[in-house]
Design a protein around this nucleic acid. Structure first.
Length: 427
RNA sequence: GUGGCCGUAGCUCAGCCAGGUAGAGCCCCUGUUUGUGGUACAGGUGGUCGCGGGUUCAAAUCCCGUCGGUCACCCCA
């Protein structure tokens, strides 16, 4: 432990092959699903002008405390840079920059970075997949976005996800509600925790997120934003709820769901993994945003989207006992007792025919090589010793069944291997 | 940023309270089996006990500091 001088930076980790297999499968699943829903991929930079993210709201913690920022090497550069802490802002920046026709339906995947203290389900580099519909006000867009996220969880086999949904109204209702809530909480501040009193001064909405025991009573009696919605916003929300019901997606209306990013308006939602026994059990979230694109230099444009945390989703899958991935075992492992050049040629030949093949390196005993062959998970071993070489043959041995083996002529190797594999997979 | 718990072999951990030659299981390597893995048995490799300082004849063990990990608050995916 002391010998390995370096380790991955705090809050980051190496995903090793066994785990990476699950990642690859999961990310592919999302990509295929999103494409089937008619979304196209956007690959945006991992860092942006700092200003892009400042538009998210200077008093959100993600912006004020958790960004990795750095200077451009060019002293004349007008802006500092920041690793992206989320992707909606980048997508909106891209929209404002390229002005594609609307509705613009896009999906993305990739790492994001937040300077936080790590804990279960929280990392400094974490991966999200997400989707956005930009330039569409129709509640059907809200419904489709939520459906896409829901079908993704389903496709992984997750069964214990709760969809929480709320409407934050427009900017005006949000402002009105904010004042009302603030007044209510101030009046009751005697019974609030010290931390909540601090939060109250900065952002009353977020007091509703408190998990502290002493706050629960005050919070549960607080006015809810539902009572302040304009008729239009109320109708929009109702349409979204009705639509979700019509496509069979269960949800829980959660009047106190406010979420951390300030840009949300109207529909907001969150997905909680019920089997995740950690503090961080939100595996996804999203909502509508007004004004964000305008802030970034685009025309006034509506948008709705979500981001799902892949790190946490995989934790949730583990908590539900799901086996992810569909990797096939290696077809064959070549054991060469004649020095290694036969293994080089044979693997080259059968790989060229599309089979999966591996071999060992170094001049090792048959016993050692067979051991490696077994560990590789390969279905068959091809053994070449002096005897085979002399007769221009190889030995083809079944590693997963009864260990039977046969002599095969070198020229017929590919056919024999093909036949043996077909037989094995037909069982 | 605040707090709890934990740092001993590649991995999982015992030993620490009552200081006295650094251990187990798994993994890996070798042999039993001179051309055969997966089972069994036998043997072997591998550790400045996170790091620095202090106490002591003697520190993995006691004390102080520090770094790292982990979990929780906060916040969020």
């Amino acid at each position: 432990m002391s010998k390995s001088h370096y380790q991955s930076p705090r809050g980051t980790r190496d995903i090793l092959p066994e785990e990476a297999e699950k990642w690859r499968w999961t990310l592919n699943s999302f990509a295929e699903l999103a494409q089937r829903f008619g979304y196209g991929q956007v690959i945006s930079p991992m860092f942006e002008d700092l200003g892009v993210f400042l538009r998210l709201g200077e008093d959100t913690e993600v912006v004020s405390k958790e960004m990795f920022t750095f200077h451009d090497k060019d002293p004349k550069a007008p802006q500092d840079l920041a690793l992206r802490p989320e992707l909606t802002a980048s997508i909106c920046r891209a929209f404002a920059q390229h002005r594609p026709t609307t509705p613009w339906k896009v999906w993305y995947e990739g790492p994001q970075f937040r300077y936080e203290k790590p804990q279960a389900g929280r990392f400094r580099q974490f991966v999200q997949v997400g989707a956005e519909i930009i330039g569409e006000e129709d509640p059907a867009a809200d419904i489709e976005i939520i459906t896409l996220a829901w079908r993704f969880y389903e496709s992984l086999g997750l069964e214990h996800i709760t969809l929480l949904i709320n409407s934050l109204g427009n900017r005006e209702t949000r402002g009105t509600y904010n004042r009302e809530l603030s007044a209510y909480l101030s009046a009751a501040s005697e019974s609030l925790s010290a931390q909540s009193r601090e939060t109250l001064a900065k952002n009353p909405l977020r007091v509703l997120d408190s998990k502290r025991e002493e706050d629960l009573e005050v919070i549960s009696a607080a006015p809810t934003i539902q009572d302040f919605l304009s008729p239009e916003d109320g109708n929009h929300f109702e349409s979204v709820c009705d639509g979700l019901t019509s496509v069979g997606i269960p949800f829980v209306i959660s009047p106190r769901l406010v979420r951390g990013l300030d840009y949300y308006t109207r529909t907001t939602f969150e997905f909680a993994a019920d089997k995740l026994q950690t503090a961080q059990n939100a595996v996804g979230g999203g909502g509508r945003y007004d004004g964000l694109i305008e802030e970034l230099g685009g025309p006034p444009t509506q948008g709705i989207g979500f981001a799902l945390g892949v790190d946490r989703i995989l934790l949730a899958c583990e908590a539900e006992g799901l086996q992810l991935g569909d990797s096939k075992p290696l077809d064959v492992f070549v054991v060469d007792l004649t020095g290694g050049s036969q293994a080089t040629q044979i693997t080259n030949e059968i790989r060229a025919h599309g089979f999966g093949a591996d071999r060992s390196f170094g001049d090792r005993s048959i016993k050692a090589q067979m051991k490696v062959a077994d560990r590789s998970g390969a279905l068959f071993a091809i053994i070449v010793g002096d005897d085979e070489l002399e007769k221009n043959e190889v030995t083809l041995r079944d590693l997963r069944g009864d260990g039977s083996q046969e002599r095969v002529s070198r020229s017929n190797l590919v056919n024999a291997l093909d036949a043996s594999l077909k037989e094995r997979y037909s069982q």
